[in-house]
């Protein structure tokens, strides 16, 4: 409303200010408030162990959420990411154990085969998702609902629900639990993924076309964008990133488990994307904000734990914050449209 009153020259600065707020949003402010508040209340919060713990968990969530964000920007959904995390974990561990039995001592080969198998099964699920959505025109919700059930089933089938061991020490101790300059490996992996995704979103044709498809499919078709290939691409990227998370988790824990990821990871990745300003209508969203939102969600969970809030009550906070974030976004969009 104020923009109407102050028409003319000052308007530019106001729209600039508003665009900065719109671009960065409420999220960093909430994040800072949370961190400052928690540091004042509980010194344990800024202890080294707790910070590393937060960073590790936030990194894993951020990697999955980046892929999820890309799919949502293109106007889709990926419900299968949690199941892919589990499947990749199990397949990686089993493959490493099998290769270790066949070629004992050849650590490089063992790790390479395990990682390739994990990423490969992620890619396979992503291609199935993309093919069904893009070529067969089945809604993304239903397709990934189906592959979620199927992928989780395969993961459980391979292991019968028992953790899979037999990975080389250098993979677990030398990679998964290793620290470089005091930070866990997962943090570097997440930073690399976020940087790569930022580059893809801003500087590559693929990234720009994904925005175009999510913003207006018909316009993208008319402009000559090959829709199907790019949609398959988004699902493939999402599943591969989920598989990467599965491998990182496996290396960290030291066993492949079909209980990794799951519905919780899937719902949190969507929550992170949505709170991070990715519109479910498609065409809007940036991975760096999604990563901040993943950090925010992780710190929130951590803070609730430290404050001794009953873990059973914690989902309530997540639910309220998610709805409130999107509702605020929606209301501000409406008031903008009215101006």
């Amino acid at each position: 409303m104020s923009a109407v009153v102050t028409a003319g020259m000052p308007r530019r600065s106001i729209t600039l200010g508003r665009s900065i707020v719109g671009r960065i949003g409420l999220l960093p402010a909430l994040l800072v408030a949370l961190v400052v508040g928690m540091s004042a209340i509980d010194p344990q919060f800024y202890g080294l162990i707790n910070i590393l713990n937060i960073l590790r968990n936030a990194s894993l969530l951020a990697i999955v959420a980046c892929g999820q964000a890309l799919v949502i920007v293109a106007g889709g959904f990926d419900l299968s990411v949690g199941a892919v995390v589990a499947l990749a974990s199990v397949v990686t561990a089993k493959t490493m154990a099998a290769t270790a039995a066949a070629f004992p001592g050849n650590t490089a080969l063992i790790i390479a085969s395990g990682a390739a198998a994990g990423i490969g099964c992620g890619l396979a699920v992503g291609l199935v998702n993309g093919f069904c959505v893009a070529k067969l025109k089945v809604s993304g919700f239903v397709v990934t609902l189906g592959t979620m059930s199927a992928t989780a089933g395969v993961g459980l089938m391979i292991t019968s629900g028992i953790p899979a061991y037999g990975m080389p020490d250098s993979f677990v101790k030398g990679f998964g639990r290793a620290q470089l300059f005091g930070l866990p490996t997962a943090v570097y992996a997440a930073l690399a993924v976020i940087a790569a995704m930022m580059f893809v979103q801003r500087r590559t044709l693929f990234g720009r076309y994904v925005y175009a498809i999510g913003g207006n499919v018909d316009a993208a078709v008319v402009s000559g964008v090959s829709i199907q290939r790019h949609i398959v691409g988004t699902y493939a990227v999402s599943s591969v990133l989920a598989a990467l998370t599965g491998i990182l988790l496996t290396a960290q824990v030291g066993s492949g488990q079909a209980s990794f990821g799951g519905d919780r990871m899937m719902l949190q990745s969507i929550a992170a994307a949505v709170i991070g300003g990715v519109s479910l209508r498609g065409g809007v969203g940036r991975v760096e904000i999604v990563a901040i939102s993943a950090l925010f969600l992780t710190i929130l969970g951590n803070a609730l734990n430290l404050l001794h809030v009953d873990s059973r009550l914690q989902p309530v906070f997540l639910g309220v914050i998610m709805v409130a974030a999107v509702a605020l976004d929606e209301l501000s969009r409406r008031s903008k449209a009215r101006v």
Partner: peptide, 16 residues
């Protein structure tokens, strides 16, 4: 009334 997508709204109440 708030115009939130059914997915987000019911995901919120799912958690609650």
């Amino acid at each position: 009334l708030l115009g939130v997508s059914p997915f987000v709204a019911t995901l919120g109440s799912y958690n609650i």
